[in-house]
Design a protein around this nucleic acid. Structure first.
Length: 393
DNA sequence: ATAACACCTGT
DNA sequence: CAGGTGTTA
């Protein structure tokens, strides 16, 4: 019997909240590279760590189901390796039909007490207060290309992630692709994070606290784990935050204006424009932040006839700014959210979703024509038109 | 201010 | 050659 919870297995400990698939698609939202902590552990079932708890999530047409595993709180740092070994022993014991005791560390047996706090955590994490359907409708009226891809890629929403996890994960992202970043973040948590529980031989660790990364020995440790030159960035950045700003500094940037927060992040080693924008958008509530990488650059050129800087070989700061401004003008204050939809739709792993509805050549050229005609028709202008309507009453 | 180049590692 | 940053012309 699987230790990972399965909805179809009829376990009563599942809880749910109302949430249509049009507002949230777990596969797209958790697999598009904004978080590196979730895995599809069974068909449509996603297991990961959030807010110091291990969760399994799945969904039906109008419902989001969640299961929270209980675990022993374990704050010690020095005994972790020892515990890890003990846990392996326990698991072996488990497999040889030894009776599992509830108090054994690292095994998930008892459900936590039901309460609505966990639902609140989920609502906050998925930002369910943001009405994605309304946003899709707005973006579709100003952007025919968005409208086209939005038909297939519904429910792509931004997570409200922990700023520490977000920052240190994205420092790892330079010159890198999603699957390798996942592996690196995995090893980081496994080595320096608290063990929360173990399911089917898979260990789930919390993301390490800032204080676990500040020691100078961390750099060599991470180099051994295959972090390369990024190892120093992680150690240095954590040290600067703790020593010069204070442990709550990152969190406090949530109440700072976008540009101010981004500039603050940029002072950290390993944090350039792109990483800073990722952290702003994905953990600091800055929804106009729009991370531009070579991939987004390709999208701008291919789907929006974006010409500026096309002679450049690399993505310069100038082109970075222009692409961001272009999309912010087109999509408005939630431009970062719209960007993530197109980014997701362009990932190789999701290309098969498009196969059902092949785009004929005529339709493609038709779309481009529309784009050119409406080049001036931006989000802002659309909003002001709406305003006029209201004024007339 | 703007644009190449080294940096780690995997593919 | 990569979903990038820091350094240096």
């Amino acid at each position: 019997m699987s230790q990972h919870a399965l909805l179809l297995a009829g376990c009563k400990a599942w809880r749910s909240l109302s949430c249509p698939r049009s507002e949230l698609r777990l596969d797209l939202t958790l697999g598009c590279g904004q978080t590196f902590r979730w895995r599809e552990t069974a068909d449509g079932h996603w297991t990961g760590v959030m807010q110091g708890k291990v969760w399994t999530l799945t969904q039906t047409e109008d419902t989001l189901w969640y299961y929270v595993y209980s675990h022993q709180i374990n704050t010690g740092t020095e005994n972790r390796m020892k515990q890890k070994v003990e846990n392996e022993d326990q698991l072996l014991g488990n497999m040889s039909k030894r009776k599992i005791k509830q108090e054994e560390v690292g095994l998930c047996i008892v459900m936590s007490e039901p309460d609505n706090k966990e639902e609140e955590l989920l609502r906050d994490y998925f930002q369910l207060g943001v009405k994605l359907g309304d946003l899709y409708r707005d973006w579709s009226t100003v952007d025919p290309h968005f409208k086209h891809t939005a038909n297939i890629f519904t429910g792509v929403r931004l997570l409200r992630q922990d700023p520490v996890e977000c920052l240190f994960s994205f420092i790892c992202s330079s010159n890198n692709h999603i699957s390798r970043i996942q592996g690196m973040v995995d090893r980081l948590c496994q080595t320096l994070g608290t063990l929360l529980c173990k399911l089917d031989d898979v260990a789930y660790h919390d993301f390490p606290p800032l204080q676990a990364l500040t020691d100078p020995s961390v750099e060599m440790c991470l180099r051994d784990l295959g972090f390369g030159y990024r190892a120093r960035f992680l150690q240095q950045s954590s040290q600067i935050i703790v020593n010069s700003h204070g442990p709550d500094w990152l969190q406090s940037l949530r109440s700072a204006p976008y540009r101010q927060a981004r500039n603050a992040l940029r002072t950290l080693p390993g944090v350039g424009l792109k990483v800073a924008d990722c952290v702003c958008l994905m953990s600091l509530d800055k929804f106009e932040a729009l991370p531009v990488d070579t991939h987004v650059w390709q999208i701008a050129k291919r789907d929006y006839s974006f010409a500026a800087g096309s002679s450049q070989k690399t993505l310069t700061d100038r082109v970075y700014k222009e692409i961001g401004d272009f999309f912010r003008k087109l999509w408005g204050p939630y431009a970062g959210w719209a960007h993530s939809v197109l980014f997701c739709a362009d990932l190789k792993r999701f290309q098969k979703l498009k196969e059902e509805i092949p785009v004929v050549k005529d339709e493609k050229t038709e779309l481009k024509k529309k784009m050119k005609e409406r080049r001036h028709d931006t989000y802002e202008e659309k909003q002001s038109k709406k305003g006029k309507k209201y004024q007339r009453k």
